[in-house]
Each structure stands twice: as structure tokens, then as C-alpha cells.
Amino acid sequence: MILDWITEPLQYGFMVKALWVSAFVGIVCAVLSCYITLKGWSLMGDAVSHAVVPGVVVAYALGIPFAVGAFLFGFGATVAIGYVKENTRLKEDAVIGVVFTGFFAFGLVLSTKIPSNIDLFHILFGNVLGISQEDIIQTLIAGFITLLVILLRRKDLLLFCFDPNHAKAIGLNTKFMYYTLLLVLALTIVTALQTAGIILVVAMLVTPGATAYLLSDRFERMLAISVGTSLLSSILGVYSSYYLDAPTGACIVVLLTLLFIAAMIFAPKYGLLRRSHSTIESN
């Protein structure tokens, strides 16, 4: 019976596609999410994801791949944030708030004025069940570039998250590291756009890392847990979406959140149970 539950959706081509694309996206997001949560860039992830909207609209209008437009605007927004922060006396959160909502709103206006057949709902909430072949290719390319860059530069990126001053002290180029991390952030968002949609992509980018951080004190283990929870949520999310007839991205994010809550309560060292327990002990 459980076997039927698993195999039934697999007779549909679109379900098979949705499953492996979501799984792939889950892995890419989970890997980056470890760096983003440790660096404290969650809000930046939210900003980039919203800022890609005008890029997507322009790309469709010009007939170029959506990933290119999304990437350019997403990365452009981070550069704009950096510029405004350097040149005004505003704090970073205010700058991020101003810039990304500006990009997002501009994209919404643009999408109603530029004739295209984009479904705004699909951009905002994702549409992995109806993903086209060329969108899959773009997702794969963006995802593989992200994984490759992180794989090759993982130690520098981790050092940059942990102690950028030390990186400078040993003569490494921290500006380059900063932009590398922004670049893979923008690429990951492009990767996840079709699955989770703009509104929820930040969850795929933050929650797996946050869950794993509560469960481990070693980066390698954190990475493994992050990928594990993300993969599980992606696959089960697609199934839930099929059986509940609910949006796939939302199902994935709900599962990710449930796993996070479980970790928050039951984590062996940093869980709420453990902490209240140790408070009692120390009293």
C-alpha cells in the first residue's frame, strides 16, 4: 500500500520531472544555506529573490533565457545595496528594505505593461509541476555552476563567513570572496525560482541551514544534515502537493519548517527540551 502511494504519481511524466528537479534544487539550496545562515545573510537572500522580478519580465520580453535576466537583476540589486550602504549613513537593513522592494515593485509594474505571457502567479509561487524543458536546463546550469563554485572555494568561503579579518591579515582578497558569495547566492535563487517561487525561495535558502545549525557543531556534519533535511522535504513536498492538491513550493516549505521546529525542540545539545533540562540541572 505504501508502495502504491509512492509509485502512483510516478506514472505521470510531470511528476517524475517535478520530483527530481525539486530534489536537485533542494540540494543546491541546502549547500548554500549553510554559508548564508552562518554569514547572517538571510535578509540578503530575501532581497535578491524579490529583486529578480523585473529581470524575469525583461528576459521574457526580449526572448532571452529567464535565468540570465533574473541573475543580472538579482546580482545588480546586491551591488546597488552595497553602493547605497557605502554612500549613505543608513544601516544595512534599511538599505536592503528600500532596494529590494523597489526592484520588486518595479517588476510588478513592468509585468503589466510589457506584453508577455508570463503568469505572475507562477513567478511568485513557483510552478515546478508545469516546468518546461528549457527552464529545467536553465535550472540545471545555474545549479551546477553554484555547486562547482562552492566546491572549489568552500574553504575560503567558510573562512570569509567566520573571520574575514583573518582572511585579510593573511593577504587574501576578501572583496573577491564577498562577490563570489553574492554571485552564488544570486545563482541559487535563479535555480530555485521555478520550484519555490520568489516569495518562498528564501525559506529553501535559510531553513535547511538553520535546522542543521541547531543539530551540529561541525561544518561538515551541518552540511550533511542540511542537505538531508532539504532533500527529504523536497521529495515529500512534491508527494504532498500531489495528494493534497496544494502548491508544491508551499508544501516543501511547510515540511522544511516542521523539521526546523522538531530540531528546535528535540536537538540533543541546543534543543529547547535539553536547555530547560540543563537549566534545572544547574539549579
Binding site: 552562518l38 567558510l158 563567513c161 567566520f162 573571520d163 551540529s216 557543531d217 561544518f219 556534519r221 551541518m222
Partner: peptide, 8 residues
């Protein structure tokens, strides 16, 4: 200046 919670 150090993030002592960092998993290293």
C-alpha cells in the same frame, strides 16, 4: 570579535 558558536 569572534563568533564562538561557529561550527569549527
Amino acid at each position: 570579535e569572534v563568533d564562538w558558536n561557529f561550527p569549527v
